[in-house]
């Protein structure tokens, strides 16, 4: 038996892996927050408010799935907000200007969104341009295109079928929320139980190692960016459906809300680390934070401050915890 110097260390981390520990601490902070809001507003813990939260979770929730994927590969996608806006604009323009039936228009908008992601991915993998720079460029290009195509105008989308995407219910549960839950389930399985999902982690941790292990890194990145943009485009349709109109200015700043939620959920910007459960909790925390502050009638300026503070608190907590683990390792 080889004499190992780390006698009891592994045993300790057995009880909770660092991942699940992060998830648990996130859940605890969520519960603390919920208790706080319940004590501050009699309307927080009500069925109407929960129904409201359920209806308004999907946009950030669905976009965050894709962002989790690309962050795990040590990339980032800043274009999700722009893609969401373009998708809404395209759906309405195909419908109103080209008289294409709305379901087909919506589908075309989704496919265009996926195409944007594919192009992002190609630029990143073939031209080897840093994802931050690539998607910063497409962030601007796609937003610009949304303005050009719509001529800067907001278009009404008056169609009951289309309304169903963002407003419909099935068995009393909002359709958009159901879609979101199904997507989370599917991507949870993909990330946990498929080679594709596991390879994303390997790529994020070390592209070199992944290549040596025979993983086609470029293919995985292409798929990740395409999926991310596709989901963002879907989020764009939900926005358009909920508002009953499409605007080129829609989803402004969505990318930052989404990145905040994902990072809050424990996904590392350095790649190789992240869970969808964490992301889901991150999304819910952000949403509940906004909701609670509005119910408490906190000024909107302070709401901004609160969002930033929560993010910093969550991350520094994580940092202190991992710093502590690191300290223990330094011994050897």
């Amino acid at each position: 038996m080889i004499i190992l110097t780390t006698k009891s260390k592994n045993k300790k981390s057995k009880l909770f892996s660092s991942d699940s520990l992060a998830t648990i601490s996130l859940l605890i902070s969520f519960i603390v927050m919920a208790i706080f809001f319940t004590s501050q507003s009699e309307f927080f813990f009500t069925s109407t408010n929960f129904a409201n939260l359920a209806r308004t979770l999907a946009v950030v929730g669905i976009s965050s799935i894709g962002m989790t994927l690309v962050l795990i590969t040590a990339g980032v996608d800043l274009s999700v907000g722009s893609v969401a806006a373009l998708s809404g604009v395209l759906a309405s323009m195909f419908w109103l200007e080209l008289n294409i039936p709305l379901p087909i228009s919506s589908l075309l908008a989704l496919l265009t969104g996926a195409l944007v992601g594919l192009i992002n991915g190609l630029i990143i993998t073939v031209l080897k341009i840093n994802p931050l720079i690539t998607t910063l460029a497409s962030f601007s290009i796609i937003r610009g295109l949304a303005f050009v195509i719509s001529d800067g105008q907001t278009n009404m989308l008056n169609n009951q079928g289309f309304y169903f995407i963002g407003r419909g219910n099935i068995l009393g549960i909002p359709f958009s929320l159901l879609v979101m839950i199904v997507l989370y389930f599917i991507f949870f399985i993909i990330l946990r139980y498929t080679s594709f999902g596991r390879n994303l982690f390997a790529i994020g941790a070390s592209p070199e190692m992944s290549r040596l292990a025979g993983i086609n890194v470029d293919k995985h990145l292409l798929i990740s960016y395409t999926v991310t943009a596709f989901l963002a485009a879907f989020a764009g349709l939900i926005i358009a459906s909920q508002l009953g109109s499409s605007a080129p200015r829609a989803a402004t700043g969505l990318e930052f809300t989404v990145i905040t939620a994902v990072v809050l959920g424990g996904t590392s910007l350095a790649g190789g680390k992240g869970t969808l459960i964490g992301t889901l909790i991150g999304v819910i925390i952000l949403r509940v934070l906004n909701n609670g502050l509005v119910l408490m009638e906190v000024s909107s300026f302070y709401q901004e401050v609160a969002r930033g503070v929560v993010l910093l608190l969550a991350l520094s907590f994580d940092q202190i915890r991992s710093g502590f683990l690191h300290l223990r390792r330094e011994r050897t």
């Binding site: 109407t48 926005i239 989803a251 906004n290 119910l295």
Partner: peptide, 16 residues
Amino acid sequence: QEESFRVVSDTLPSIP
């Protein structure tokens, strides 16, 4: 429009 949608969504439960 989106922000107005969001804040009104969050406010309506407080005036049931």
